[in-house]
């Protein structure tokens, strides 16, 4: 159980009011990220993102599955069922997200507590990514309407924790989805209205996911005292009484908003937080995209060294 003393809490709160946090950052300053994509060879796309000590590994796998529409009642896969309850089109693929916080990352991730945290994070991801606000063109994932589609499985593994988990997860997801390649399919009509399809084995032929540029990222704003901060460390999160998570896409549109923790806030503060989150979200996406482009340029050169977990 993470603990903090009342005097440390007071020290952090007064520091935030004075715009001088424990590590000297201002209220809206982020720590440095370290990112690397394409490090898991078995996955269709992957990314590892580190924010100080917080370490997140995303693996994206695309698989062929049945299109589940509202007429089937099949309680076996409850997670997919929940997603489908929100969609009733028979020509869309879907995205299934799951988050697992490794117990080695923090004492809080052991046993029953981990289930709640995993469930909460998975639900937030599913809420943001499934649907038009998630950016990804789900119709392009359909192979045979009414029958088969591509399912994108996004699996998040949290390896280490020092605050600001959700922002890291979403930034890494965006990078992993940019990195994902879906094999090309060829549909053949074998008569009788039946369709069959072939998957091309050629790696060069795989295409990017349509709409990855519109995948939103989240900005977590922690209210401490009467002010709010972004990118809280683990200690600062212990002082937070209200946390607002706002998902922003590259056009500055709000794709999701959720409050958590036990406090309440003024509507005017909420309005200010939304405006700040919009600005910060746009900067995050711009800088992430620039770095990903730079990484691709380096990868296309001869010495393509991936560090993976070596560093």
């Amino acid at each position: 159980m993470a603990l903090i003393s009342p005097s440390e809490k007071d020290f952090i709160t007064k520091g935030i009011e004075a715009d001088m946090r424990n590590d000297g950052r201002s209220r809206i300053a982020y720590r440095d990220f370290t990112i690397e994509t394409g490090i898991v060879s078995q996955a269709s796309g992957s990314c590892r993102l580190r924010l100080s000590k917080t370490d997140v590994l995303i693996g994206v796998k695309v698989e062929i599955g049945d299109i589940i529409s509202n007429t089937t009642s099949d309680n076996n896969n409850e997670q997919e069922q929940d997603i489908v309850n929100n969609q009733n089109e028979s020509d869309k693929g879907r995205i299934v997200c799951s988050v697992e916080c490794s117990p080695s990352a923090s004492r809080d991730f052991e046993g029953k507590g981990a289930n709640d945290i995993n469930n909460e994070l998975s639900q937030i991801m599913n809420r943001v990514l499934n649907g038009p606000q998630g950016g990804i063109d789900l119709k392009s994932l359909c192979i045979i309407p009414g029958a088969q589609c591509w399912i994108i499985y996004v699996d998040v593994l949290v390896l280490d924790y020092d605050g600001n988990l959700l922002d890291t997860i979403f930034l890494a997801t965006r990078a992993a989805l940019q990195n994902t390649r879906i094999p090309k399919t060829e549909i053949q009509d074998i008569g009788n209205g039946q369709l069959e399809f072939d998957i091309s084995d050629d790696i060069e032929d795989a295409e990017k996911i349509k709409g990855w540029e519109d995948v939103p990222v989240t900005v977590s704003l922690n209210k401490i005292g009467q002010k709010y901060i972004v990118d809280a460390t683990a200690m600062e999160e212990l002082c937070t009484d209200t946390k607002i998570i706002i998902a922003v896409n590259r056009n500055g549109e709000i794709c999701a908003m959720q409050k958590s923790l036990y406090g309440s806030l003024n509507p005017s503060l909420l309005t200010e937080m939304i405006r700040t989150a919009k600005d910060i979200g746009k900067v995050l996406i711009k800088n992430l995209d620039t770095t990903l482009e730079h990484e691709q340029v380096m990868a296309s050169r001869a010495n393509n060294k991936k560090f993976g977990f070596f560093i």
């Binding site: 809420r127 943001v128 649907g131 038009p132 606000q133 607002i244 896409n249 500055g252 549109e253 709000i254 794709c255 999701a256 908003m257 959720q258 409050k259 309440s264 806030l265 003024n266 509507p267 909420l270 309005t271 939304i274 405006r275 919009k278």
Partner: peptide, 28 residues
């Protein structure tokens, strides 16, 4: 969800794309 006498928002949940100004209008 809102506490009317204390004028404090206790929870906000939003899904789907909205402009920032639209969500502020929705709050009001």
């Amino acid at each position: 969800s809102y506490m009317p006498s204390l004028k404090q928002v206790t929870h906000v949940l939003c899904t789907g794309k909205m402009e920032a100004e639209q969500s502020i209008e929705a709050i009001g």
